[in-house]
Protein backbone atom coordinates (compact mmCIF):
# COMPACT_ATOMS: atom_id res chain seq x y z
CA UNK A 1 0.00 0.00 0.00
CA UNK A 2 2.83 2.34 0.91
CA UNK A 3 4.56 2.01 -2.46
CA UNK A 4 1.25 2.62 -4.23
CA UNK A 5 0.86 5.82 -2.29
CA UNK A 6 4.43 6.77 -3.18
CA UNK A 7 3.57 6.06 -6.80
CA UNK A 8 0.70 8.56 -6.64
CA UNK A 9 3.01 11.19 -5.15
CA UNK A 10 5.57 10.50 -7.86
CA UNK A 11 2.90 10.79 -10.54
CA UNK A 12 1.83 14.18 -9.20
CA UNK A 13 5.42 15.42 -9.25
CA UNK A 14 5.94 14.04 -12.73
CA UNK A 15 2.83 15.70 -14.09
CA UNK A 16 3.73 18.99 -12.45
CA UNK A 17 7.18 18.81 -14.01
CA UNK A 18 5.68 17.90 -17.37
CA UNK A 19 3.29 20.83 -17.21
CA UNK A 20 6.19 23.12 -16.34
CA UNK A 21 8.35 21.93 -19.20
CA UNK A 22 5.94 21.74 -22.11
CA UNK A 23 4.49 24.61 -24.02
CA UNK A 24 3.94 26.10 -27.42
CA UNK A 25 6.80 27.04 -29.70
CA UNK A 26 7.09 28.37 -33.24
CA UNK A 27 8.80 26.58 -36.08
CA UNK A 28 10.80 28.29 -38.79
CA UNK A 29 7.70 29.00 -40.85
CA UNK A 30 6.02 30.65 -37.91
CA UNK A 31 3.56 27.80 -37.28
CA UNK A 32 2.85 27.00 -33.64
CA UNK A 33 3.57 23.58 -32.21
CA UNK A 34 3.28 22.06 -28.82
CA UNK A 35 6.03 20.10 -27.21
CA UNK A 36 8.93 20.28 -24.79
CA UNK A 37 9.81 23.93 -24.35
CA UNK A 38 11.74 24.73 -21.23
CA UNK A 39 10.23 27.57 -19.26
CA UNK A 40 11.86 30.94 -19.52
CA UNK A 41 11.75 33.63 -16.89
CA UNK A 42 8.83 35.00 -18.85
CA UNK A 43 6.77 31.83 -19.22
CA UNK A 44 7.56 30.18 -15.87
CA UNK A 45 5.06 32.23 -13.86
CA UNK A 46 2.22 31.24 -16.18
CA UNK A 47 3.10 27.58 -16.03
CA UNK A 48 3.65 27.65 -12.29
CA UNK A 49 0.31 29.36 -11.83
CA UNK A 50 -1.38 26.79 -14.04
CA UNK A 51 0.16 23.96 -12.02
CA UNK A 52 -0.80 25.55 -8.71
CA UNK A 53 -4.31 26.33 -9.95
CA UNK A 54 -4.95 22.92 -11.50
CA UNK A 55 -3.55 21.12 -8.47
CA UNK A 56 -5.64 23.02 -5.97
CA UNK A 57 -8.81 22.57 -8.03
CA UNK A 58 -8.13 18.84 -8.21
CA UNK A 59 -7.42 18.70 -4.49
CA UNK A 60 -10.60 20.56 -3.62
CA UNK A 61 -12.86 18.62 -5.98
CA UNK A 62 -11.41 15.24 -5.04
CA UNK A 63 -11.83 15.84 -1.32
CA UNK A 64 -15.27 17.38 -1.80
CA UNK A 65 -16.35 14.28 -3.71
CA UNK A 66 -15.01 11.99 -1.01
CA UNK A 67 -16.64 13.97 1.80
CA UNK A 68 -20.00 14.00 0.06
CA UNK A 69 -19.85 10.32 -0.86
CA UNK A 70 -19.24 9.56 2.81
CA UNK A 71 -21.97 11.95 3.90
CA UNK A 72 -24.57 10.64 1.48
CA UNK A 73 -23.28 7.04 1.65
CA UNK A 74 -23.69 7.06 -2.10
CA UNK A 75 -20.92 6.22 -4.54
CA UNK A 76 -22.51 8.36 -7.24
CA UNK A 77 -22.46 11.53 -5.17
CA UNK A 78 -20.26 14.23 -6.67
CA UNK A 79 -19.30 17.67 -5.37
CA UNK A 80 -22.22 18.95 -7.41
CA UNK A 81 -24.90 16.64 -5.96
CA UNK A 82 -25.75 19.34 -3.45
CA UNK A 83 -26.54 21.79 -6.24
CA UNK A 84 -23.33 23.75 -5.74
CA UNK A 85 -22.45 24.14 -9.41
CA UNK A 86 -25.97 25.10 -10.46
CA UNK A 87 -26.08 27.52 -7.56
CA UNK A 88 -22.77 29.01 -8.63
CA UNK A 89 -23.87 29.40 -12.25
CA UNK A 90 -27.05 31.05 -10.99
CA UNK A 91 -24.92 33.43 -8.94
CA UNK A 92 -22.74 34.23 -11.94
CA UNK A 93 -25.82 34.77 -14.10
CA UNK A 94 -27.22 37.09 -11.39
CA UNK A 95 -24.08 39.20 -11.38
CA UNK A 96 -23.98 39.37 -15.20
CA UNK A 97 -27.69 40.18 -15.38
CA UNK A 98 -27.57 42.86 -12.72
CA UNK A 99 -24.49 44.38 -14.32
CA UNK A 100 -26.12 44.34 -17.76
CA UNK A 101 -29.42 45.86 -16.67
CA UNK A 102 -28.21 48.45 -14.15
CA UNK A 103 -24.94 49.44 -15.75
CA UNK A 104 -22.99 48.71 -12.58
CA UNK A 105 -19.74 47.00 -13.53
CA UNK A 106 -19.46 43.32 -12.74
CA UNK A 107 -16.28 44.02 -10.79
CA UNK A 108 -18.22 46.32 -8.48
CA UNK A 109 -20.62 43.42 -7.87
CA UNK A 110 -17.78 41.14 -6.89
CA UNK A 111 -17.16 39.81 -10.38
CA UNK A 112 -18.00 36.32 -11.50
CA UNK A 113 -16.03 34.99 -8.56
CA UNK A 114 -18.26 36.85 -6.12
CA UNK A 115 -21.38 35.69 -7.93
CA UNK A 116 -20.25 32.08 -7.87
CA UNK A 117 -19.41 32.21 -4.16
CA UNK A 118 -22.79 33.78 -3.39
CA UNK A 119 -24.74 31.28 -5.52
CA UNK A 120 -22.90 28.24 -4.19
CA UNK A 121 -23.35 29.35 -0.58
CA UNK A 122 -27.02 30.09 -1.21
CA UNK A 123 -27.63 26.64 -2.63
CA UNK A 124 -25.86 24.98 0.31
CA UNK A 125 -27.92 26.88 2.88
CA UNK A 126 -31.15 26.10 1.03
CA UNK A 127 -30.31 22.39 0.70
CA UNK A 128 -29.53 22.22 4.42
CA UNK A 129 -32.86 23.83 5.29
CA UNK A 130 -34.90 21.85 2.76
CA UNK A 131 -33.44 18.54 3.92
CA UNK A 132 -34.32 19.39 7.52
CA UNK A 133 -37.90 20.12 6.55
CA UNK A 134 -38.20 16.89 4.60
CA UNK A 135 -37.08 13.90 6.63
CA UNK A 136 -34.19 15.11 8.67
CA UNK A 137 -30.73 15.36 7.26
CA UNK A 138 -29.99 11.85 6.16
CA UNK A 139 -28.20 11.15 2.89
CA UNK A 140 -31.33 10.60 0.85
CA UNK A 141 -32.98 13.83 1.97
CA UNK A 142 -29.83 15.86 1.32
CA UNK A 143 -29.25 14.32 -2.10
CA UNK A 144 -32.87 14.83 -3.12
CA UNK A 145 -32.89 18.41 -1.90
CA UNK A 146 -29.60 19.04 -3.73
CA UNK A 147 -30.79 17.57 -7.01
CA UNK A 148 -34.12 19.40 -6.93
CA UNK A 149 -32.54 22.69 -5.94
CA UNK A 150 -29.85 22.23 -8.59
CA UNK A 151 -32.56 21.91 -11.22
CA UNK A 152 -34.35 25.01 -9.98
CA UNK A 153 -31.12 27.03 -9.87
CA UNK A 154 -30.18 25.95 -13.41
CA UNK A 155 -33.56 27.08 -14.64
CA UNK A 156 -33.07 30.34 -12.77
CA UNK A 157 -29.79 30.88 -14.59
CA UNK A 158 -31.49 30.09 -17.89
CA UNK A 159 -34.30 32.50 -17.08
CA UNK A 160 -31.78 35.27 -16.44
CA UNK A 161 -30.12 34.43 -19.76
CA UNK A 162 -33.45 34.92 -21.47
CA UNK A 163 -34.52 38.17 -19.90
CA UNK A 164 -31.23 40.03 -20.17
CA UNK A 165 -30.88 42.06 -23.35
CA UNK A 166 -28.35 40.84 -25.87
CA UNK A 167 -28.17 37.63 -23.88
CA UNK A 168 -25.54 36.30 -21.54
CA UNK A 169 -25.26 33.08 -23.48
CA UNK A 170 -21.70 33.43 -24.55
CA UNK A 171 -20.59 34.64 -21.14
CA UNK A 172 -22.37 32.03 -19.10
CA UNK A 173 -21.60 29.16 -21.45
CA UNK A 174 -17.93 30.07 -21.43
CA UNK A 175 -17.99 30.20 -17.64
CA UNK A 176 -19.69 26.83 -17.41
CA UNK A 177 -17.05 25.10 -19.52
CA UNK A 178 -14.62 25.37 -16.61
CA UNK A 179 -11.16 26.87 -16.94
CA UNK A 180 -7.94 26.94 -14.98
CA UNK A 181 -6.90 30.58 -14.86
CA UNK A 182 -3.26 31.07 -15.77
CA UNK A 183 -3.15 34.48 -14.22
CA UNK A 184 -5.23 33.96 -11.09
CA UNK A 185 -5.63 36.43 -8.33
CA UNK A 186 -2.70 35.41 -6.09
CA UNK A 187 -4.67 35.93 -2.89
CA UNK A 188 -7.46 33.69 -4.18
CA UNK A 189 -4.94 30.99 -5.05
CA UNK A 190 -3.34 31.16 -1.62
CA UNK A 191 -6.73 31.11 0.11
CA UNK A 192 -7.72 28.05 -1.90
CA UNK A 193 -4.54 26.23 -1.00
CA UNK A 194 -5.01 27.01 2.67
CA UNK A 195 -8.59 25.77 2.50
CA UNK A 196 -7.60 22.62 0.63
CA UNK A 197 -4.75 21.71 2.98
CA UNK A 198 -6.87 22.42 6.07
CA UNK A 199 -9.64 20.21 4.71
CA UNK A 200 -7.13 17.50 3.93
CA UNK A 201 -5.84 17.57 7.49
CA UNK A 202 -9.31 17.63 9.04
CA UNK A 203 -10.58 14.76 6.90
CA UNK A 204 -7.40 12.78 7.50
CA UNK A 205 -7.69 13.30 11.25
CA UNK A 206 -11.33 12.18 11.03
CA UNK A 207 -10.49 9.14 8.91
CA UNK A 208 -11.66 6.67 11.56
CA UNK A 209 -15.00 8.48 11.79
CA UNK A 210 -15.38 8.32 8.01
CA UNK A 211 -14.62 4.59 8.17
CA UNK A 212 -17.28 4.02 10.83
CA UNK A 213 -19.73 6.17 8.89
CA UNK A 214 -19.65 3.51 6.19
CA UNK A 215 -21.46 1.24 8.66
CA UNK A 216 -25.09 1.31 9.55
CA UNK A 217 -26.21 4.46 11.39
CA UNK A 218 -26.91 2.59 14.64
CA UNK A 219 -23.68 0.68 14.46
CA UNK A 220 -21.70 3.83 13.80
CA UNK A 221 -23.44 5.69 16.62
CA UNK A 222 -22.77 2.82 19.02
CA UNK A 223 -19.14 2.85 17.93
CA UNK A 224 -18.86 6.43 19.08
CA UNK A 225 -19.67 8.50 15.98
CA UNK A 226 -21.76 11.58 16.70
CA UNK A 227 -23.83 11.28 13.57
CA UNK A 228 -25.45 14.70 13.52
CA UNK A 229 -22.29 16.71 14.08
CA UNK A 230 -20.18 14.49 11.82
CA UNK A 231 -22.70 14.88 9.02
CA UNK A 232 -22.89 18.63 9.54
CA UNK A 233 -19.10 18.77 9.41
CA UNK A 234 -18.93 16.76 6.21
CA UNK A 235 -21.66 18.89 4.66
CA UNK A 236 -19.78 22.06 5.49
CA UNK A 237 -16.41 20.74 4.33
CA UNK A 238 -17.74 19.15 1.12
CA UNK A 239 -19.90 22.15 0.30
CA UNK A 240 -17.16 24.68 1.01
CA UNK A 241 -14.57 22.85 -1.05
CA UNK A 242 -16.90 22.43 -4.00
CA UNK A 243 -18.02 26.05 -3.80
CA UNK A 244 -14.43 27.27 -3.66
CA UNK A 245 -13.40 25.14 -6.63
CA UNK A 246 -16.41 26.16 -8.71
CA UNK A 247 -15.92 29.84 -7.94
CA UNK A 248 -12.28 29.65 -8.94
CA UNK A 249 -12.43 27.55 -12.10
CA UNK A 250 -16.06 27.04 -13.03
CA UNK A 251 -17.88 23.73 -12.75
CA UNK A 252 -15.22 21.23 -13.81
CA UNK A 253 -17.02 17.92 -14.07
CA UNK A 254 -16.20 14.33 -13.13
CA UNK A 255 -13.13 15.08 -11.01
CA UNK A 256 -15.02 14.72 -7.74
CA UNK A 257 -16.50 11.45 -8.95
CA UNK A 258 -13.47 9.90 -10.60
CA UNK A 259 -10.82 10.86 -8.02
CA UNK A 260 -12.31 9.04 -4.98
CA UNK A 261 -13.17 5.96 -7.02
CA UNK A 262 -9.73 5.75 -8.58
CA UNK A 263 -8.19 6.13 -5.15
CA UNK A 264 -10.41 3.33 -3.79
CA UNK A 265 -9.41 1.10 -6.65
CA UNK A 266 -5.78 1.83 -6.07
CA UNK A 267 -5.44 2.11 -2.32
CA UNK A 268 -8.51 0.50 -0.75
CA UNK A 269 -11.38 1.77 1.31
CA UNK A 270 -9.76 2.73 4.61
CA UNK A 271 -9.95 6.49 4.84
CA UNK A 272 -6.60 6.94 6.53
CA UNK A 273 -4.93 6.32 3.18
CA UNK A 274 -7.98 7.05 1.06
CA UNK A 275 -8.21 10.71 2.09
CA UNK A 276 -4.68 11.71 0.99
CA UNK A 277 -4.86 9.38 -2.02
CA UNK A 278 -8.10 10.96 -3.18
CA UNK A 279 -6.49 14.37 -2.89
CA UNK A 280 -3.56 13.12 -4.98
CA UNK A 281 -5.86 11.50 -7.55
CA UNK A 282 -7.83 14.74 -7.87
CA UNK A 283 -4.58 16.62 -8.48
CA UNK A 284 -3.51 14.00 -11.02
CA UNK A 285 -6.80 14.15 -12.92
CA UNK A 286 -6.89 17.93 -13.26
CA UNK A 287 -3.16 18.26 -13.94
CA UNK A 288 -3.33 15.64 -16.70
CA UNK A 289 -6.38 17.29 -18.20
CA UNK A 290 -4.61 20.65 -18.16
CA UNK A 291 -1.50 19.07 -19.67
CA UNK A 292 -3.54 17.32 -22.34
CA UNK A 293 -5.39 20.45 -23.37
CA UNK A 294 -2.12 22.28 -23.96
CA UNK A 295 -1.38 19.88 -26.78
CA UNK A 296 -4.88 19.27 -28.09
CA UNK A 297 -5.61 21.98 -30.60
CA UNK A 298 -8.43 21.22 -33.01
CA UNK A 299 -7.96 24.60 -34.65
CA UNK A 300 -9.89 26.36 -31.92
CA UNK A 301 -7.09 27.03 -29.51
CA UNK A 302 -6.96 25.25 -26.19
CA UNK A 303 -10.03 23.40 -25.08
CA UNK A 304 -11.47 24.34 -21.70
CA UNK A 305 -10.19 21.95 -19.05
CA UNK A 306 -13.77 21.05 -18.08
CA UNK A 307 -14.33 19.68 -21.56
CA UNK A 308 -11.31 17.40 -21.23
CA UNK A 309 -12.23 16.09 -17.78
CA UNK A 310 -15.77 15.34 -18.92
CA UNK A 311 -14.64 13.74 -22.18
CA UNK A 312 -12.07 11.54 -20.48
CA UNK A 313 -13.89 11.16 -17.16
CA UNK A 314 -17.16 9.90 -18.60
CA UNK A 315 -15.76 6.79 -20.30
CA UNK A 316 -13.42 6.18 -17.40
CA UNK A 317 -16.29 6.26 -14.95
CA UNK A 318 -18.30 3.87 -17.11
CA UNK A 319 -15.35 1.52 -17.05
CA UNK A 320 -15.23 1.76 -13.24
CA UNK A 321 -18.94 1.08 -13.16
CA UNK A 322 -18.66 -1.99 -15.34
CA UNK A 323 -15.98 -3.33 -12.99
CA UNK A 324 -18.27 -2.74 -10.04
CA UNK A 325 -21.12 -4.61 -11.71
CA UNK A 326 -18.88 -7.61 -12.12
CA UNK A 327 -17.93 -7.34 -8.47
CA UNK A 328 -21.61 -7.57 -7.61
CA UNK A 329 -21.75 -4.56 -5.37
CA UNK A 330 -22.35 -0.93 -6.00
CA UNK A 331 -19.37 0.02 -3.86
CA UNK A 332 -17.02 -2.58 -5.19
CA UNK A 333 -15.27 -0.03 -7.33
Amino acid sequence: MKWRFALLVALVLLLALARLSVGPHLDGAGAMHFGVAMPTAETLPFRANAVAGAAVVGLLLGLAGLALQALLRNPLASPYTLGVSSGASFGVACVLAIAATTGISTQALGGEFGGAVFGAALSLVLVWMLAKRATGRDGVALALAGIVLGGVMSSGAMLLEQIVPRGLRGDLLAWMAGRIPELPDPSALVALWILGVLALIVLWKAAHLLDLLMLDDDEAAAAGVRLASTRAGLFIIGGLLAAAAVSFAGPIGFVGLVAPHTARLFIGHRHRLLVPSTALCGVIVVLSADLLRQGLDVGTGRLPVGVITALAGGPFFLWLLSRSRRGGSEWNL
Binding site: R73, L215, E219, A223
Partner: peptide, 21 residues
Amino acid sequence: FVPQRGSCAADFSVEELVSLG
Protein backbone atom coordinates in the same frame (compact mmCIF):
# COMPACT_ATOMS: atom_id res chain seq x y z
CA PHE B 1 -24.04 -2.92 19.02
CA VAL B 2 -24.72 -5.09 15.99
CA PRO B 3 -28.02 -4.25 14.31
CA GLN B 4 -30.04 -7.01 12.70
CA ARG B 5 -29.57 -5.95 9.10
CA GLY B 6 -26.49 -3.85 8.89
CA SER B 7 -25.11 -2.53 5.68
CA CYS B 8 -21.66 -1.39 4.78
CA ALA B 9 -21.24 1.38 2.27
CA ALA B 10 -17.58 0.60 1.58
CA ASP B 11 -16.09 -2.65 0.38
CA PHE B 12 -13.65 -3.25 3.22
CA SER B 13 -11.77 -6.49 3.61
CA VAL B 14 -12.81 -8.65 6.57
CA GLU B 15 -9.78 -7.56 8.57
CA GLU B 16 -10.31 -3.88 7.72
CA LEU B 17 -13.93 -3.99 8.73
CA VAL B 18 -13.22 -5.75 12.03
CA SER B 19 -10.55 -3.18 12.85
CA LEU B 20 -12.72 -0.15 12.01
CA GLY B 21 -12.42 2.52 14.62
